[in-house]
Structures are given as C-alpha cells and as structure tokens.
Simulated assay, not measured.
Amino acid sequence: MSQLTRAAGRAFLGGLAAGGTIAAISAVRRSKWSKDLERVNHRGDTVSLAEGPGVTIGATAAAVAGAASPAYAAAAAATGLATGALGLYDDMADTKGEKAKGFKGHLSALLKGRVSAGLVKIVGISATGLASSALVDTVSDRRPEGRWARLWNIGVGGGVIAGAANLLNLFDLRPGRALKVASAVAAPLSRPAGPKARSTASSGANTALAVSAAAAAAMGDDLEGKTMLGDCGANAVGALLGLSYIARTGPVGRHVALVGIAALIAASERVSFTQVIADTPVLRELDEMGRNKA
C-alpha cells in the first residue's frame, strides 16, 4: 500500500469518526430523550450527555471501518457499542436516583441485597472485554503457545479493555478533561503500523485514530461546558483505547498496562484526581487549557 493511499484511508476514517460524532450528537439532542440526558455540572450549569452516544457511534463506526479482519471488526463493534450502552444504562440510572458510586458503593449495595446499575455495568463491560480480547486473539499472528497461556493472555487483554473503560470515566469530572486524556493516550497508539508489526496492529492504530477524531469533534462543546461524555462516552472511548492497545502489544505490554490501570483505579478510591491535578502546576495548566472560564 502506497503512502498516499494509506494517508487517504486514514483521512477517510478520521472524517467518518468526526462527522459521525457531530451528526449523532445533533440527532440525540433533537430526540425525545434529550431532556433525560441533561445534568447539572460542578458549576451548577446544565449540560447534555448527548456527547456520550455521539462519540460512541462516531468512534465505533470508524473503528469498524478501519478493521483489517471481520473478527477485529466484531471486536470493535462489541467494545464500542456494548460498553457505551452499559454506560448509558448507568447514566439513566442517575435520573432514577441511583446512589451507589465507586467499587465500594456497588459492593455495599450488593451486600444489602440490591444490584446497582454500576455493578451491572462493571460485569457487562468485563464480559465484553473478554469477548473482544478473544476475538483479537483469533486473528493475531503472535499468540502465546499453549492453551493456558493463551487463555491467560486473553484474560489480561480483557482486563485492560474493561479497566481502561473504568479509568477514563474517572477523569470525566471537568470540561474537556476526559477527552484530553483520551487524545493523549490515542496519539502514540494511532501511529501507522510498521512492516514488522503484529497482524492486528494496523486495526489497532485505526481504532485509536477513530477515537482521536471523535474526541476532536466533541472537544469544543465539552470545553465550553455544553456537553459531556458521561458514563456512556467515557466507557466506550476508554474501552476502544484498551482494544487498540492490546491489538498493538504482546503479553508483557498487556501485563504492564493492567497493573498500571489497576493501581490508578485503586488510588482513585482514596485520592482525588481533581485535587492532584489542581495541586500540580503543569497538569493544572493542561487541564484548564481551552476551557470556558466565564
């Protein structure tokens, strides 16, 4: 494939992700469910969660279009749409007064005999991550030898996808923050795969490219405090980045990512990411960049 053809293909995927995101957000905001997707943010302003379904649709469509195999296309579709739908279910539970938040909150609710929407989401996203990881494994040319080694590798890959979905959601607390984090992670993952890369690397690169373009399309309104990702968008975008990562890396990379993700999620139960960002000058400047301060 020539460089010109590759560049044209990447431009098409970026346009599909961005255009699909903008069109989907607009359609959701005009729908009969638009009022149900309104929330009050940390400043007391009303924002729309329409961005979540919009980014999910735009990024997933381009990730599927950029897949190099039917199995990876199925993994991308399942990862984006299933995690997005589960996140939307959790978003809508907020409207009905769902109070359980965080792992401790979901566990406490379960001990009281109540299955929280968040727990349903966690279990569903975990199952989706495992299924998507298994699909990637079927078309990988560098699978670990031995049945148990392969199963373990699939499990770690599923953990990366599910963990990334959860982790990105923890950053969706201020305008533009989660999209900036997603864009920063997607940048190295979206680089074109080299000739010696694993067979799934090009699909992974296109998935990250789709996330970058969808995030860029939604960034303006998010920074202005008009829309936000919500659980729907944050879970889908995070999961797609996790999928991109496992498509480009082997067992060692997967283990490193899973340990890092697990450590950050565990830390979030005790430490406020917002406070850490506020107390760190460089992170604070990056976090506030482009944000509407009026």
Rank of each mutant, 00 (worst) to 15 (best):
Q3S: 14
L4C: 07
A8G: 09
G9I: 02
A11C: 15
L13C: 08
L13H: 07
G20H: 00
T21V: 07
A23M: 10
A27P: 10
S31L: 00
W33R: 15
G44V: 00
D45C: 08
V47W: 01
E51G: 15
P53W: 01
G58Q: 03
T60R: 01
A61T: 13
A63I: 06
A63D: 10
G66E: 09
P70E: 14
A73Y: 08
A74N: 11
A75T: 05
A76N: 10
A78P: 15
T79Y: 03
G80L: 11
L81T: 14
T83G: 13
G87S: 04
M92F: 13
A93T: 08
D94L: 13
T95F: 09
T95G: 13
K99P: 00
K99M: 11
S116C: 10
V120F: 11
K121F: 11
G124Q: 00
I125Y: 02
G129Q: 07
L130G: 15
L130E: 11
L135R: 03
D137C: 09
D137P: 00
T138W: 09
V139W: 07
A149S: 12
N153H: 11
G155Q: 02
G158V: 03
V160G: 03
L170V: 11
P175F: 00
P175R: 00
A178P: 14
A182Y: 05
P188N: 01
R191N: 14
P192E: 01
G194S: 14
K196E: 15
A201D: 11
S203L: 06
A205F: 07
N206V: 05
T207C: 01
V211D: 05
S212P: 09
A213E: 06
A213C: 00
A215E: 03
A215S: 13
M219V: 07
D222A: 03
D222Q: 04
G225N: 08
G230P: 10
C232R: 04
G238N: 03
L240V: 12
L243V: 01
Y245M: 06
A247I: 06
R248Q: 07
T249N: 13
V252D: 15
V259Y: 01
L264S: 01
L264G: 08
I265R: 01
A267V: 06
S272H: 03
S272K: 03
T274N: 08
A278N: 09
T280M: 05
P281D: 04
P281I: 01
V282K: 14
V282N: 12
L286E: 03
L286M: 14
D287I: 06
D287W: 03
M289A: 13
R291F: 04
K293N: 15
